[in-house]
């Protein structure tokens, strides 16, 4: 192919693959084994946290009110839903306003956490191709960092939620401590889901257009805005087992954990064993499954 070869270059006596093997060269861009991948990811933990915090800080850096929007955005969101579902439609299943508002706000915040993790996960590879094509790092860093950004965002929201809950007369008890393991499990679940959708979105960019509709359907089916069981019990055409199925879905599970932990009504008292079991199960299945599914395509993410 070339007219001149390097003057001092020796004629090729051995196949290149053999030459590479003899000098201990490895194939560039090959997918590491799963344990090696986990180690690489752990080595990049500082990058993941720094990246997620940087994204969070950059989000509102141009706004006049700055980081105040971290709290104002979820608050305004909750207000809109309260006006529509609490006041206009009165879809509150017989709850008093003092019980309904914390119920609604907890639902909106917790669901938003999953929703925005999925939405940023879909675009985490396809929207950062420049980085993927210029730098070496385990690609799972990106969906995980975006989920972590949403977790930090949620912590701001939880401050608002705590204030609202106390404001309506539900005072902190020891069960409030259960918020932390609940959010941890939800984070694992969200990160897994974000990794699944990151892989899908890297291959089919159209996912980013489709997901908002899927997620909105999921929201209405999970009892974010109204008590699911009460609505189904009122409705004769829907069988009761539908309520069991809908309550086992992960969005409803993580929402209920927060409501059980914070809201002090007969409906949400005690520690729901079954819901915790579901929460743990979903976190393990989607968290580990999503990670493995994402890793399987690790070497192909550069191609867009």
């Amino acid at each position: 192919m070339s007219e001149t070869t390097r003057a001092s270059a020796p004629p090729r006596a051995v196949p290149l693959a053999e030459l590479a093997a003899r000098h201990g060269l490895s194939v560039s861009g090959a997918r590491p084994s799963l344990p090696a991948y986990v180690r690489q990811l752990w080595a990049r933990r500082h990058f993941i946290t720094a990246f997620s915090r940087a994204k969070l800080a950059a989000q509102y850096s141009q706004a006049k009110l700055g980081q105040l929007w971290q709290v104002a955005t979820p608050l305004l969101n909750a207000l809109v839903y309260f006006l529509i579902f609490g006041v206009i439609l009165e879809a509150r299943g017989g709850m008093s306003t003092g019980d309904y508002i914390p119920f609604l706000v907890a639902g909106v915040f917790v669901f938003t956490f999953t929703q925005s993790s999925v939405m940023s996960g879909v675009k985490s590879i396809s929207g950062n191709l420049g980085m993927v094509r210029a730098l070496h790092f385990p690609r799972a860093s990106l969906p995980i960092a975006f989920s972590l950004q949403q977790l930090q965002q949620l912590l701001y929201s939880m401050i608002v939620l705590a204030a609202i809950t106390i404001g309506f007369g539900h005072y902190p008890t020891w069960t409030w401590l259960l918020i932390f393991p609940a959010l941890l499990l939800q984070f694992v679940f969200n990160a897994g889901l974000a990794m699944i959708f990151a892989r899908l979105g890297s291959h089919t960019p159209d996912m980013a257009q489709l997901m908002p509709f899927v997620l909105r359907t999921w929201m209405y089916a999970s009892g974010v805005l109204f008590p699911l069981r009460a609505m189904i019990e009122d409705n004769d055409t829907v069988p009761l087992w539908a309520a069991d199925v809908l309550e086992a879905n992960p969005a409803a599970v993580y929402m209920d954990l927060i409501r059980y932990a914070m809201i002090d009504t007969p409906q949400y008292s005690g520690v729901p064993g079954l819901t915790w079991a579901y929460a743990l199960g979903w976190a393990l299945v989607i968290g580990i499954g999503g990670f493995v599914y994402f890793w399987k395509a690790e070497e192909r993410y550069g191609r867009g």
Binding site: L16, A17, A20, H23, G24, L25, S26, V27, S28, G29, A30, F51, N128, G130, M131, V132, R133, A134, L135, H136, E299, R300, G302, R303
Partner: peptide
């Protein structure tokens, strides 16, 4: 650098080659 997968053929490297550039990050 191993950042773009090859369609055919292989690249063997010693260690991890890196591109000079962090613009994207």
């Amino acid at each position: 650098a191993g950042l773009l997968p090859t369609e055919r053929g292989k690249v063997y490297t010693d260690g991890q080659p890196s591109l000079l550039g962090v613009n994207a990050a």
